[in-house]
Structure formats: structure tokens, C-alpha cells
Write a protein that binds this DNA or RNA. Structure first.
Length: 236
DNA sequence: ACCACGATGAACT
DNA sequence: GTTCATCGTGGTC
């Protein structure tokens, strides 16, 4: 059963559409209010790697972090060596080390000079599933990317990705505007052995909102967003 | 120079 | 449901 799933990872069929610059989310997408960006990133596709070797999946859970008025944010105390990146250009990656073991991926938001970032908490695997299984040392698809530290391990996101430009295919990490090639990718994955739970155009009624996870301050804000009934969401 | 703690995951019960 | 390994970061002294 696992073997069948690997064989049907039909990355080859859609390679050119994935690495098509016009399908990548632009800087303007990120240069907006962080909660709006977080909400709209649901259903979009995260890709890591090069044309001949890449992996990725559908974003199904994320969280918004602001600056001065958000005690849970790394930017709450202003610019430090770590938080500096959150004040820079929207559409770049903020990757930081957590709990002595894990790298966590964020997308920087808001206008230059205003801090903001969206933490990517879970994706639904689409491409490079075999590589993900090897990196995670786990053959269960459900366990590959259903958490912020898990997905960075599965996709091989490390501190070198910090500051990379997410709005171009050139730096090996980017986000795709699913709406632009929805029909292509839907067709390409119609024979996937495991059942895709998120591959549909996202509307408001499919999105759930909750407090953020794993923080002690700022718990009252409803800044976590996830797709209802998606089995790759880290926690209910 | 020091030190408390965390945007976690894995392995338990 | 529980505990805990692990170490970079940043605030404090």
C-alpha cells in the first residue's frame, strides 16, 4: 500500500507548471495585514527544491504573528538579531530554531519596516513524498507534515533558508497561487493513491479559526487558521 | 557572564 | 492524557 502511494507521486506530470514563474505568489500578496495573508495562504502550495528534485504540499494550517502589540511575537520587543527579518521585505522566509531541535518556517508580511509573519504549521503532502518519508524516517503519510517542526524536517528546510525570497522560483523555496492552475493540478493528481483532502478552491466556510498553539502570552487572540476536517492539521 | 524559557515532537501511560 | 530532551535567543545582572 505504501509502495503504491510512492509510485503515484506523479511529480513528473506537473513539473513545468510548478516551476512557472507566473504561478508564484507575488510580493503584493504578502504586503498586507498578516491575518488576511494567513487566511489566504490556506490552500496555497509550498514548494522546496529545484526543478529536478523538489517536494511540497498544500498549506492547511498557519498562524499570524504581529509586532509591538503581540506579546507572542518574536518582534514584540522590537528589532533584535533574530527578529530583524520580520521587519524586512514582505515575501521573504523567516526560519528560526526552536526547542533546541526544530526549525520553523514563516512567511514575512506587512510593508517593509512593519513586523509581521505567518507561521506555516501544517501542509498536506503532494510532491516528493518518498523523500519526505526518508527524511522523517516514517512511512505514514499522515505523520510527515502535520506540525510546524515536522514539515520543515520533511521538506529539508534549514536555517540557510532564512531570508530567502519566496516570490520567485530562483531561491529554491516558494509558494504557488493554486487558483492559477487549479484544473491542471487537479487532473494531474486524480489518480493519486491516497485521497487528497484539501485540493479544492478554498472559501470562507472551509476555514476554522482558533487561538494560537504553544504560546503562553497572547492566547486570547484568534490568529490560528486551518482547513476544517483536514486530517493533516496538527491539532483540533 | 548568566540563565530561564520556548511559535515542538516523540515516547510514553 | 503525561513527561522530557535539547540549545539558541534575549533579557537581566
Amino acid at each position: 500500500m505504501v509502495e503504491a502511494e510512492i509510485e503515484n507521486d506523479n511529480t513528473d506530470n506537473i513539473r513545468d507548471k510548478v516551476f512557472y514563474e507566473n504561478n508564484v505568489l507575488s510580493r503584493e500578496f504578502y504586503e498586507r495585514d498578516t491575518a488576511i495573508v494567513a487566511k489566504e495562504l490556506l490552500g496555497k502550495i509550498l514548494i522546496v527544491g529545484e526543478l529536478d528534485n523538489f517536494c511540497g504540499g498544500i498549506i492547511v494550517e498557519d498562524e499570524a504573528y504581529y509586532g509591538t502589540n503581540d506579546p507572542a511575537s518574536h518582534a514584540s520587543n522590537g528589532i533584535t538579531p533574530r527578529s530583524r527579518i520580520m521587519f524586512e521585505n514582505p515575501g521573504i522566509a523567516y526560519v528560526y530554531f526552536c526547542y533546541g531541535n526544530y526549525y520553523l518556517l514563516n512567511a514575512v508580511t506587512e510593508k517593509f519596516g512593519n513586523p509581521g509573519a505567518v507561521l506555516i504549521r501544517a501542509i498536506e503532502p503532494l510532491f516528493g513524498i518518498q523523500n519526505m518519508m526518508e527524511r522523517r524516517k516514517n512511512e505514514k503519510i499522515i505523520e510527515l507534515t502535520n506540525g510546524p517542526g515536522k514539515l520543515t524536517m520533511a521538506l529539508n528546510i534549514r536555517k540557510e533558508h532564512n531570508g530567502k525570497n519566496l516570490t520567485s522560483i530562483k531561491e529554491g523555496i516558494f509558494m504557488l497561487d493554486t487558483d492559477k492552475f487549479y484544473n491542471d493540478i487537479k487532473l494531474s493528481f486524480s489518480s493519486l493513491a491516497y485521497k487528497l483532502s484539501s485540493f479544492k478552491l478554498i472559501n470562507e466556510s472551509q476555514i476554522a479559526i482558533s487561538p494560537r498553539i504553544g504560546i503562553k502570552k497572547g492566547r486570547k487572540s484568534l490568529l490560528r487558521f486551518y482547513l476544517k476536517n483536514n486530517k493533516f492539521v496538527s491539532r483540533k
